[in-house]
Design a protein around this nucleic acid. Sequence first.
DNA 1: CCTACCGATCGGTAGG
DNA 2: CCTACCGATCGGTAGG
Lengths: 213, 213
Amino acid sequence: MENKQTARQGDMRKAILDAAMRQFGAQGYEGASLQAIADEVGIAKPSLLYHFDSKNRLRKAVLESLLDHWKNELPGLLSNADSEHDRFTSTITALVSYFMEDESRARFALREALDRPAEIRGLIKKHLTPWIALVTDYIRLGQRLGVVKQNVNPEGYIIQVMTMAIGTVALGHVSAALFGRDRALSKEDIIGEMVRVGREALFVNPMAPNKDR
Amino acid sequence: MENKQTARQGDMRKAILDAAMRQFGAQGYEGASLQAIADEVGIAKPSLLYHFDSKNRLRKAVLESLLDHWKNELPGLLSNADSEHDRFTSTITALVSYFMEDESRARFALREALDRPAEIRGLIKKHLTPWIALVTDYIRLGQRLGVVKQNVNPEGYIIQVMTMAIGTVALGHVSAALFGRDRALSKEDIIGEMVRVGREALFVNPMAPNKDR
DNA sequence: CCTACCGATCGGTAGG
DNA sequence: CCTACCGATCGGTAGG
């Protein structure tokens, strides 16, 4: 009862963050106006600035909500796996599912990397570096075990997989229609081929069953 | 002599197109102002609108300059190759070189796909469809010859390679610093790993010498 | 190619 | 959470 007001404010903040992510993702930060975001939420523009002091702070809050998700998700993802193949499959599935669940996430993340490379580089370094290092360690372990190809460049490989995952989702509406109706591709086809490419490039035996050691 | 004036105007148009591509690529279409573009060229804003009737027409002219390059380049690229491996190497090298030569090209292309998916889809369909169909035909030929893996989805594969090529160049400044100084990656490392990923996912024998039939 | 200028919209503030 | 309003900047025009 004492936090009824707080709960309502929390709901409103979440509604604003959702609308902002969609608008920023679709129109870009400069292209999206506070007016359009306020309209989508159903409030007046100054009311929006009561919850977030400025457009820039609103953007940072959206960014933070993405980072928080992965800071909570990554630890479990990387430890709960019985084999290298499982680890690859569950990690890339979680990565792609998260962005496909709401494509605005992929578009927003891609735009931020284009608009503010220095800031995004700093955020990644600060929040994601230990987890990325863990992935490269696993790849090197796989190489010693003979499960992962020797010619894989672990750091470069991670960049390619992340670029494919975010890029494929963010550009889905463009690329799916690259071919005539007769050769139309479903989202599942595109994602499936992405996983296949990542798998073939990584594993000595890409089609190995679940257990590999 | 009679076209001295025309030559000067052509030079000015080219200077404006260059500045516009850099500004659009770095700041986005909405984020880049005509004033900033005019400043970079060293003329007044209304002078810019004498050469291009509106900001939107200037954007379309930049887009057209990218498409024209590939409409001229692709025919030669796809026919001048002695083997499937050569075709893959020369095509992906040309693709990546073109974007690396001026990274604004990759950023601008990526932003346009995000900002105006319907328009870009239409442009690709109109200008690039026959060449893309030729590439899928080559992949299917390679599969019949036993050079290309049977589980490749030709359409999906092309999407992944294009996403990797454009995304890797456009996001180079962000991704290169994902790792500490001790594991720093050069552009060549990143591009090399991209080519390796594409090759391993495509060929039955990724390390085959030049001739394969 | 320039100076001078236009209406519209932007992010943000005052005050309640 | 709202109405009313601000200065700054936007793309674009008039006129030379």
